[in-house]
Structure formats: C-alpha cells, structure tokens
C-alpha cells in the first residue's frame, strides 16, 4: 500500500547544527501515529519540513506517493496535507465560523473568486457550520475567536484543518497550553476524527499519546531513535533514559 506520507533520508541543518538527520518515516492511510521526543528533538522542524515552511537540505518527501519535496506550501495543502499549530494561529478578530469558511472556500477553490459575494456561496458556509457542530462549536459560531477560552480555540485549529478535507493531518501539540480540565474535550475530538485521515500527533502529554497512538516514533537530536507500539516504547530502556528519564528530572 502506498503510504499516505513518507520521508526518505530527510535532512536539514541550520549551519553546522543538524536538526533533522536522515529521517525515514512513513504514515499509512488512516494511521494514528504519534511523534514524541524531548524539547529540541526537532519535532516542529520535522513538521515544518513536511509542510514546506522549511526546505530540506537533502532527502525526499512523498505525499500519497507524489514527490512534494520542492512544492510550495499551498500545493501541498491542495494535495491533502493539513496541519494545526502548536501555538494558535487563527484569525483572531474574525468569528469562529468565518475562520472555518476561509479554509472551506480555499479547499473548494472558490477563494480567488472576486466577482460574486461570499454570501452567494451558501454551501461553503453551511459546510463550515456543520463542521463546527460536529466539534460542538456550533453555539460559538458567531463569537470572535479571541473571545473563546483557549481550549476552544485549540478546537478551532482542528476545525480549520478539517475544513481542508485532508488525507494527512499533522497535529502539533493539540493540547498545548490547555488547562487539564479542558483537555478531555480535545482528546475526544481527536479520537473521533474520520477514520480515513492519516493522523500524526506531536505531543508532550504522554497520557494523550498512549491513549491515542497505535504507533509511536521517538525523535532525539533530529534522528529517529526508535519506533514501535505504545507498549514497546514504554518498555524501551533507551526511551526511558532520554525521554521519560528527563521528564522525571525536569
């Protein structure tokens, strides 16, 4: 089966400092994988390489078998690569619904249309609204994003990504900065993501990772240390040393 997403020998250095060192990684369609690693392991760099915010020094990135290594960000999104950000990256002054409509319009290729009122594309607004209802944000649809509690803003991040109907979804620390009372809502949304989307979650929260992921990749100093099922990772001595151990000290 063609992987939904694959990297082959992916490398990136900032000057002499390697931040991605020969990463071979693949995500099968419908996957539920997690990427973990201590601070500075290169997790976000890896995401930025895949999405095209950074250009790799060497290696290849394949999306559904197609080489996207040199493709601009927009092209990757059009081919089904969605992401959320570790720090909310939203249209804060706009309403929740408008945030999602923006993504839905872009996905349907209507966003460049300048000779019709946005309101005449009723279907796009309805699609965005039904997405919000699915994430239980329907009642907040007209609130400006900046007035939402942080936990709900994290859900808007996910709603925008889902508005793009991705085949691969990268969740960069979806529960970051959310008070523990609200993480449960985010977890349940993530668990209910459509089964045909390949999901890669980058996360610090071990409880979330072990509950969600079928397979875990551990990244240390820009390189893959080990890959395996949650049970294998939990039992791995090296992982305990570099990751869990560090957590005990920190």
């Amino acid at each position: 089966m063609t992987p939904a997403l694959q990297t082959v020998g992916l490398k990136k250095s900032f000057g002499a400092l390697p931040v991605a060192n020969d990463i071979n990684f693949s995500l099968v369609p419908g996957a539920r994988y997690a990427l973990i690693g201590p601070n500075g392991a290169g997790k976000t760099t890896f995401i930025n390489l895949i999405t095209g915010r950074l250009a790799p020094s060497a290696g290849q990135i394949l999306l559904g078998g197609e080489d996207i290594t040199r493709m601009p960000q927009a092209g990757r999104v059009k081919r089904g690569l969605g992401r959320t950000f570790q720090i909310n990256t939203l249209f804060k002054g706009l309403s929740v619904l408008e945030n999602v409509v923006m993504a839905v319009s872009e996905h349907h290729g209507k966003a460049a249309d300048m000779f019709r009122y946005a309101g005449s594309h009723r279907g796009l607004v309805e699609e965005a609204y039904s997405l919000l209802e699915r994430l239980r944000l329907g009642a907040d649809a007209l609130l400006p994003v900046k007035e939402l509690p942080y936990g709900k803003q994290r859900l808007v991040e996910i709603a925008i990504a889902l508005g793009l109907k991705p085949s691969v979804l990268l969740l960069d620390e979806p529960a970051a900065g959310v008070p523990s009372t609200e993480t449960e809502i985010i977890l349940s949304v993530i668990e209910q993501l459509p089964g045909d989307i390949a999901v890669l979650i980058i996360e610090h929260d071990m409880e979330l990772v072990f509950r969600f992921a079928k397979k875990i990749t551990v990244l240390v100093q820009g390189a893959v240390l080990v890959e395996g099922t949650p049970a294998e990772i939990a039992a791995d001595a090296r992982v305990r040393e570099v990751y869990l151990g560090e957590r005990d000290h920190g």
Partner: peptide
C-alpha cells in the same frame, strides 16, 4: 467576495493563510 475575505485573512494571519 471570497477573494476580499481572503485578503482580510492575509492581513489577520498570513501564516494561517499559507497553511490553508
């Protein structure tokens, strides 16, 4: 128009616009 809305999006958050 949708085009005009997307300009507002670019003004509000250009990183997000790249990502959609």
């Amino acid at each position: 128009s949708p085009f005009g809305r997307s300009l507002t999006g670019i003004r509000e958050n250009i990183t997000r616009m790249h990502a959609i």
